[in-house]
Design a protein around this nucleic acid. Structure first.
Lengths: 244, 244
DNA sequence: CGAATCCTTGACACTCTTCAAACTGTGTGG
DNA sequence: CCACACAGTTTGAAGAGTGTCAAGGATTCG
């Protein structure tokens, strides 16, 4: 069925949230999946589409976004390996936004039908998947709060904290250092700022010795300070492991 | 069990999304529920709480919000009768925001335990509830986009369109006229603006003959114009009825 | 009738945007 | 190995949009 063990990634992810039984593990691993490699900047699903499959990100980064007016883009979320960025399409049949890659990426497509069967047969897995979409929503709330009530500096600092912790949770970061494939334009589109202002804000942050951002690596030099500056509270990421 | 027929509201709501079987209807109506009447401005759950029940709004308005810094408030969503504003607490055990009333309100509390049982025994109902939380998330995405990339005028106009349609869907509005219990401070906290700027923007909208907003009633005098000005596209509300 | 709440107004400050240009780094083909 | 192109970053100057503060006016309700 699944090429190699692409679905193993999903098992590990869900198991890190709520312990899976062997049967559940089995059920997930035997989902059908088609794997593909995509180039950077490629759309996976588009606003208005009615997809019949979900996409599990195996490697690389992706983002969801909307376009308003004449070309203004708002990035809604960033996604890293282990995420299913369009899981909501399982129950919302028309896409209200687009999903695209930011880097070269490997994705596995899983038919809606198989996922729906899975959630009915294994309500425990269903609950964990539902939970994933709820964490997603919690992140939207946090970003909203930032765009409504935080300064540019705070918003960017907050995003650094968030992404670092998410990467660390899947062992793609550590020691306050993580891969950073985002351009300043991406950062601006995610925080609701112009790229120019992002640039100036980053310089300020560097000036205060909080971060280093060169090439494709972010180094957080003063984690505590970054947390304080952005009033970051990781509760909304709901990273702790729970029993079902 | 349920006092009177408070749960009938939930049946009607879910049935308007996906047709329920008699058994499902039955299962919902026999959920245990405690009904209470709350005063305006009262908190129902608070940031940091670990609730063991969800709250079905029977009458009145509520909102979810976060507080940042020294008292700055961001409203995350508005809720009207038929909504379960804290449904996410079913799977996210710690609240990352608060929920409070805006007007006098009647709510029915339903234990998590009973809801979890229901979703396992009736996967169809589970799917519809999951879907409700996904529509919620879709609305967060739309608000984010507004705060990141739309002007004050567009944001407020957009909100008018959204709330009017949501109220109309539960027959609390019609003929481009609806109840409007929100103050200009509330409106500002929802759109990420100051109350002063909300005031000036509303005057501009009135000046252009788009709306009337007096007492506790909003009248939309130029619906098409309002839609156009805010680039409103109702897709994200996912209001169409679907089969399960 | 008074008190509270909400709305409105003015003046001013500031964050952030826009536009346009120059600069840097990196990969590619000759 | 250099020249070039391209994508991304940096800089400056000017201005729009929105926030803040503070005070006065209008409603509503008991």
């Amino acid at each position: 069925m699944a090429s190699d063990h692409s679905l193993n990634m999903l098992v590990r992810r869900l198991d890190s949230i709520a312990t899976l039984s062997d049967a559940e593990r089995q059920a997930i691993e035997s989902l059908p999946a088609r794997t593909r490699v995509l180039k950077p900047g490629q759309d996976i699903v588009r606003d208005g589409d009615q997809p019949s499959q979900c996409c599990l990100l195996l490697s690389g980064w992706a983002c969801r976004y909307k376009v308003v007016g004449e070309g203004k883009r708002q990035i809604l979320s960033f996604h890293i390996p282990g995420d299913i960025p369009d899981l909501q399409s399982l129950h919302l049949h028309t896409m209200d936004h687009s999903l695209g890659t930011l880097t070269e990426a490997t994705v596995a497509f899983i038919p809606h039908e198989s996922l729906r069967e899975l959630t009915v047969r294994s309500p425990g897995v269903g609950a964990v998947l539902w939970r994933e979409t709820l964490v997603d929503a919690a992140t939207f709330r946090e970003w909203m709060t930032g765009m409504g009530r935080r300064s540019a500096y705070e918003r960017i600092a907050h995003l650094f904290c968030e992404l670092y912790l998410k990467l660390e949770a899947v062992e793609l970061a550590g020691e306050h250092r993580c891969p950073w494939p985002l351009t300043q334009v991406d950062l601006g589109d995610a925080t609701g700022l112009s790229n120019v202002h992002v640039n100036r804000t980053l310089q300020e942050m560097r000036g205060q010795g909080l971060i280093t951002l060169r090439g494709c690596t972010l180094v957080i030099q003063a984690w505590d300070e970054l947390i304080r500056a952005s009033e970051f509270d990781p509760t909304y990421l709901h990273l702790e492991k729970r029993a079902t």
